[in-house]
Amino acid sequence: MSTKGKSIYGLILDERNQQKGNSADQQYFYLNHESAGLQYQVKFVDAQKLGIELDYISIKRNQSLEEVAEINEMLSVQAQKIQESVTFLLEDFKLLELDKQNKRAQLRSYPPYADDDAKYYYEIVLDEGNAVHFQRYQFIRQEKRYAKITSQLTAETFERLIDSLSDLLDS
C-alpha cells in the first residue's frame, strides 16, 4: 500500500499554517508538490489534524502516452480500478463515459446523494491516461444549476484517496 497520502497530508498541514501566516483572511489554500514523477495539486479551504475541507485534487504524471489505442485501454483499466478501489467515500463510482475522441473518462458517484433541494456527487475525470482530477459538485434543483462544492473528508479518508489516485497513475 502506498504511503503518499500520509506525506501529502503532512505537507498540506504545513502549507496551511504557512499560508495562513501570510494572510489571515485567505479563502483557499493550495499545495503544489512533485514526487516520484507525479505532480500533485490540492486546493482546500482548511485542514486540521483530523480532517480537511477539500476543493479539488489534481494529479498528473510527467510522462505521457502517445498511442491513442494505448491511452483508451489505459483509461478503461483506470476507470475499472476506481470503481473497485474508491469505495470509502460513502458513494460508489460509476463510469459515465469513456470519450475515446477526447481521450477522457468521466466517473461520478452513483447513485448521487440527494436531499430535497439538491443532488450531490463526486466526479473523477481521467485525462489521457496520465492525469486525474477529483471534485465534488452540487446540482441545485430549483435553479437547474451545477456548482462546484467542497468535500469534508477525514484525514484518513483523504490519505486513502490520494493513495488510490496515485496508484492509478503509478501502474
Binding site: 479563502q27 483557499y28 503544489n32 444549476r145 456548482a147 462546484k148
Partner: peptide, 17 residues
C-alpha cells in the same frame, strides 16, 4: 502565474452558465 491562476479559479467557482 500560480497566484494569477488562483485568482481566476476563485472567480469561476460558482460556474456561470
Amino acid at each position: 502565474l500560480e497566484s494569477q491562476r488562483r485568482e481566476i479559479e476563485s472567480e469561476v467557482q460558482d460556474m456561470p452558465s
